[in-house]
């Protein structure tokens, strides 16, 4: 308990940063992932190929490598410099972490959305067209409501994974929950106890999300 109470100045900002990283990259990856899913089901072959290529490459690359690239190798290309993001060093690495998390998670979001759209039988869309619904009406009243049920539970799993993945930033100069232990070591505190507290907080954050996901999954799987 002492390790936690004596170092609240590490745990507080650490977990706040984790949640902040999570929220920003969650929004980013949801937007990018949905756009990618649109590309993957688009009627134009070139667009489909682009979407597929992105998803195939990113899904098969370790996130640590994506971090490695954006935090350490990417600046060598000279597209961004230390002064691009407000000039402080922290903002440079923070932005790199956001990019890594967003671009990586987007590939998984894309697959979830695409799988969700595919669960809606083609007959549903054909029937609504036959009834004379416009594209918007068809999407809004027929396809999306059905697809949502298949999308939300796995999407929550993806987001839980994203929350946990933010800890990889510990190796790339971004202060968050994963880097608490290194800072504790500098202060000469017991790392094991410190790390168990970190683990405990993650359990507290993740378990409610898992429970909600399960209950949604159960409720909607019966309705289908």
């Amino acid at each position: 308990m002492d390790v936690l109470l004596d170092n609240l100045d590490l745990y507080g900002p650490g977990f706040l940063n984790t949640v902040e990283l999570f929220l920003i990259s969650a929004v980013g990856s949801l937007v990018l992932g949905t756009i990618l899913a649109m590309l993957r089901v688009a009627p134009v072959p070139v667009m489909r190929a682009m979407g597929t290529a992105y998803v195939t490459i990113v899904r098969n690359t370790p996130l640590t490598l994506v971090f490695f690239f954006f935090a350490l190798a990417f600046p060598a290309l000279g597209i961004v410099t230390a002064d691009t993001f407000g000039g402080s060093a922290a903002s440079l690495f923070y932005t790199a972490a956001l990019f890594a998390l967003t671009l990586y998670t987007a590939a998984f979001v894309c697959e979830v959305v695409r799988a969700g759209i595919n669960t809606v039988p083609v007959g549903q869309a054909e029937a609504s067209r036959a009834l004379g619904l416009t594209f918007g009406q068809m999407l809004g009243s027929v396809v999306l409501p059905q697809a949502t049920r298949a999308v939300v539970p796995p999407m929550m799993s993806t987001m839980i994974a994203l929350l946990k993945n933010t800890t990889i930033a510990a190796g790339f100069s971004v202060f968050q929950a994963g880097s608490i232990s290194a800072n504790l070591a500098e202060r000469g505190e017991n790392q094991l106890i410190g790390l168990l507290w970190v683990a405990g907080f993650f359990v507290v954050l993740v378990i409610p999300m898992t429970l909600l996901q399960r209950s949604l999954e159960k409720r909607w799987s019966i309705a289908r």
Partner: peptide, 20 residues
Amino acid sequence: VELFRAVPLVVLIFVFHYGV
């Protein structure tokens, strides 16, 4: 099963490497 699924792998690895 629930516990090990909820803890980030990075933190698990840190526990074993730096903790114990």
